[in-house]
């Protein structure tokens, strides 16, 4: 016979051994409350970012310069919605409810990536977002494929595969503009000027200032510091800008032979804090849009529920084929 305290100690040590051995934690395994809470917060905010991120790009679907670009952009924005759904699903395996997560977003208790509070002003912004923002997302997400929580890690594998299409289509837009007329090239440069610094802020504040970090490392949710990931992004983006023959808007940008890295000028963290606190160019618009769409769609969700209830009541089996095809 084991008493409750012994059983808890056992479960705890099993959880820790699992982390030490780099094994995945699965939904039905025992886990500390803090681990569960941290994951729900991180995964739901990640999901919100995917979904809110559909807005700046979605605004260009009707204005894409060709049918092909329109189809590509539609597919990309649909992917982002899909990413949101993988992630809400992963958070739900931890016991989170969709409504609670969305309420937290609307009430400002949950955040989303600050980058999506900037507007997509021209078609070149669609190129810059795909190239820079999706590249930064990939750099952030690759280590998450090895995150200790199984459903989150597996969602990341799926997402990273799709992100590489996002990144390439963005770069392709930039390349086309950069090789186009002088006006097109200027448009590409202007988009790079506006998106460069906010993209660098996506990795979060310098490690020295960043909160809730140490536990995330111990729990193997996070594996690299913000500064390290930011540097990785910079080192790959600078040569890509050279191929485009565009200029990174940073007069202090320089190659540092000794470290083998590019060095950048200071990031305006006041701007970052302002945008996170709700005062970016589009914060209010993004949330208002999300709220409106949720309200406008309420009748669809209700109708579907009503239909499902009715079907159950009639004892009708759903018309679902069993077995294989």
């Amino acid at each position: 016979m084991v008493d409750a305290a012994d059983a808890l100690r056992d479960a705890q040590s099993r959880f820790e051994q699992r982390l030490t051995r780099d094994e995945r934690v699965e939904p039905k395994d025992w886990m500390p409350d803090g681990y569960r809470r941290t994951l729900i917060r991180q995964i739901s905010q990640h999901a919100h970012s995917e979904v809110i991120g559909m807005q700046p790009e979605g605004s260009w679907i009707t204005r894409a310069p060709s049918l092909e670009r329109k189809l590509i952009l539609l597919a990309k924005v649909q992917d982002e919605g899909g990413h949101g759904l993988y992630l809400y699903g992963a958070a739900e395996t931890l016991g989170a409810s969709r409504d609670d997560m969305i309420d937290a977003l609307h009430e400002g208790r949950a955040k989303y990536s600050s980058i999506f509070n900037y507007p997509a002003l021209t078609w070149a912004d669609i190129g810059a977002i795909g190239w820079l923002v999706d590249s930064a997302a990939i750099v952030n997400q690759i280590p998450l494929q090895r995150c200790s929580y199984g459903p989150y890690a597996r969602a990341m594998v799926r997402i990273c595969k799709e992100e590489s299409f996002h990144q390439r289509q963005g770069y392709d837009i930039m390349l086309t503009l950069a090789r186009g007329t002088a006006a097109q090239k200027a448009m590409a440069q202007d988009a790079l000027n506006r998106w460069w610094w906010p993209t660098l802020m996506m990795f979060g504040p310098p490690d020295a200032e960043s909160d809730h970090n140490s536990e995330s490392f111990a729990w193997k949710i996070k594996r690299y510091g913000n500064d390290e990931l930011r540097q990785k992004f910079i080192d790959q983006a600078v040569p890509q800008a050279e191929v485009l023959d565009l200029t990174i808007p940073d007069p202090e940008l320089a190659w540092d032979e000794a470290s083998g890295h590019y060095r950048i000028g200071p990031i305006d963290w006041d701007e970052f804090r302002r945008v996170v606190a709700g005062d970016g160019p589009c914060n209010r618009q993004r949330l208002a849009h999300h709220r409106r769409v949720r309200e406008d769609g309420a009748w669809v969700r209700e109708a579907v529920e009503a239909h499902a209830d009715k079907t159950r009541a009639r004892g009708l089996r759903a018309r679902v084929g069993t077995g294989s095809r």
Partner: peptide, 10 residues
């Protein structure tokens, strides 16, 4: 993976 839905058909 997993998802939430009203019924199996959906």
């Amino acid at each position: 993976g997993s998802l939430r839905a009203e019924d199996a058909e959906l």
